[in-house]
Design a protein around this nucleic acid. Structure first.
Length: 525
RNA sequence: GUCCCCAUCGUCUAGAGGCCUAGGACACCAGGUUUUCAUCCUGGCGACACCGGUUCGAAUCCGGUUGGGGACGCCA
């Protein structure tokens, strides 16, 4: 079988991180199995689906390297097929139009099939009982059953369901006498549109049937049909509803595997009947767990960056984000975490996807991004950091060769591109300072004077080298009875304003004698 | 409320009845290397939600409890 999977987002202008994770898993599954990865744009909501929104979606996918096979399938262009599928179901009695009281035209409603005896996806799950409120009559018609359920505390809640879940239904009154039998009336209900109102009903007894499917990620999933309702497939205004459009398009695109978010599980129970009604084999399903925030709720904008664009603009590398996201709900089964795309594809199987939700951890993403940055091609790293510095607006007048040298010093120390703003001390006398460290240093006049003294004796140019800088500092230390190495940090703070950075000898050399002395002297005020 | 689903360190996860006094990664802490910073190395902290059952043996299988999430639209 040729495997065909699809990613079917509706373009809303932003691509949510949970959504793109679904796309990544779809893509990985297709690439691993040698199948096709298809993109379907569900643009039926014409209000929100703008070309700009579609462009954003495409950009995000390209940025992450999610290439798709075949042409993009636009749902809006298949609207005719959706409507005619509904018309056909209307003709064959699989769908119906309810009587409506108002002037609005009636929608088309898909009826969950009554006859499921030979349905491979429906099984009988024994007998069931529902206690009902005798003061509310049970209503039965071809469009379903309506009753009031009584819970243990005596509270009643109204419920309506499709008739399909109530095979062999008998209704008993408080005395236990049978007052209605569905099997006797079922012909009348469906053929002649008979309807019933049964008063004094205390209990519904019926054979429970449930719809079952085998989810490749979650295993066997089932839902009792008595908890399901018929569903609207075409609105009163004639436009198709998501369920219909989605299923029709999957048929049209010959989708074999539907890998999508957890939140669609309930839809799947209904979509299976739609596939059967259209006469298309039911695809294989896999439902991905959700990405959640610290409170266990769906990850949203409020919890920080929630859109792919946010991560892109914050300077995350696409490969790092891809790698991190692929590890959210999946693992190769060994201890590998940082993996090439090829390795991820080779190791990826849906059976190894977890069925519980995962919390997004920016920290770990940052760590992974740092790993990817450290191993970037140095030339590429220089190019990228320059671009970021440029957008930060401080590159004018800066020598690119010098910038490249700084980049080489800093590459292994970066976690995110915007951190280049911390490099300013290499180029300007105005730079950000860690005030706490600065204050401490100001109190330590002796150290500073000692360094200043030895540096002054060096001439700029050839004498101010890595080697001589180091020697001079050691000399200053022994001259002043300071423990070896103890002058490094004060010098760093004086020169850079920071407690961390590149090697301090390299930094001083980079700055040169004059700038170094100038910064040291700025303390003697 | 009804139905569906989920449950291992703070977080991501390994774990398919004995390889588990539960392994790895991030974060955190302590030491070492780097006479400094970053890297790196070593160590530490730290979890099978709870209660029953099955079994010679359970993180793993079953049942229940609790907690969490999802779905119940003429939204997608």
């Amino acid at each position: 079988m040729d495997i065909r999977v699809r990613f079917a987002p509706s373009p809303t202008g932003h691509v949510h991180i949970g959504n793109i994770r679904t796309a990544i898993f779809d893509w990985l599954y297709a690439r691993h199995s040698g199948g096709k990865f298809l993109l379907r744009v569900e643009d039926t909501d014409r209000e929100r689906s703008t070309q700009a929104a579609i462009d954003t979606l495409l950009e995000c996918m390209q940025w992450l390297g999610l290439d798709y096979d075949e042409e993009i399938f636009y749902q809006s262009r298949n609207a005719q097929a959706h409507v005619s599928a509904a018309a056909k179901m209307l003709e064959t009695g699989k769908a119906y139009r309810p009587k409506v009281s108002g002037p609005e035209p009636a929608p088309v409603i898909f009826r969950l099939p009554w006859d499921t005896d030979s349905n491979p996806d429906v099984r009988i799950a024994g007998n069931a009982e529902i206690i009902t409120d005798p003061s509310v009559p049970v209503k039965i018609s071809s469009s379903g059953i309506h009753f009031s359920q009584l819970n243990e505390k005596g509270k009643s809640t109204e419920r309506s369901s499709s008739l399909a879940g109530f095979h062999r239904l008998t209704i008993l009154d408080a005395a236990g006498e049978c007052i209605f039998e569905i099997e006797k009336e079922i012909e009348n209900i469906f053929r002649k549109d008979a309807s019933f109102e049964i008063a004094n009903s205390a209990k519904l007894v019926f054979q429970r049937r449930e719809i079952v499917f085998k989810d490749i990620i979650k295993g066997e999933l089932a839902k009792p049909m008595d908890g399901m309702k018929d569903l609207v497939i075409v609105r009163g205004d004639g436009t198709p509803v998501f369920h219909l459009a989605n299923v029709c398009d999957d048929v049209e695109q010959k989708i074999t595997h539907i890998i999508r978010g957890d939140d669609h599980v309930e839809n799947t129970y209904r979509h299976i009947f739609l596939f059967q009604a259209i006469g298309f084999p039911v695809p294989i399903y896999g439902h991905l767990p959700m990405i959640v925030n610290q409170a266990g709720k769906p990850y949203s904008k409020r919890d920080g960056d929630a859109y792919v664009g946010d991560f892109r603009s914050k300077g995350y590398l696409p490969d790092a984000l891809f790698n991190y996201l692929s590890l959210l709900g999946w693992s190769p089964g060994d201890d590998r975490e940082k993996m090439t795309r090829r390795e991820i594809i080779d190791a990826f199987t849906l059976e190894r996807v977890k069925s519980s939700s995962a919390q997004f951890d920016v920290n770990k993403l940052g760590n992974m991004n740092g790993q990817y940055m450290a191993e970037m091609d140095p030339a590429k790293f220089i190019e990228e950091t320059w671009k970021v510095a440029e957008t930060q607006g401080w590159t004018s007048g800066i020598d690119r060769v010098r910038f490249a040298k700084v980049a080489n010093l800093m590459q292994s120390r970066m976690k995110l591109f915007p951190q280049v703003s911390a490099w300013k001390y290499f180029f300007f006398d105005e730079f950000e300072r860690d005030e706490k460290a600065f204050a401490k240093l100001n109190a330590d006049r002796k150290s500073l004077d000692a360094i200043k003294y030895v540096f002054e004796s060096l001439s700029s140019g050839s004498e101010f080298t890595l080697d001589s800088i180091q020697k001079s500092i050691r000399e200053a230390e022994s001259l002043n009875g300071i423990q070896e190495g103890k002058l490094n940090q004060p010098l760093r703070i004086a020169l850079t304003g920071q407690t961390t950075g590149a090697g301090i000898y390299e930094t001083a050399e980079m700055l040169g004698r004059d700038k170094t002395l100038k910064r040291l002297k700025s303390f003697s005020a």
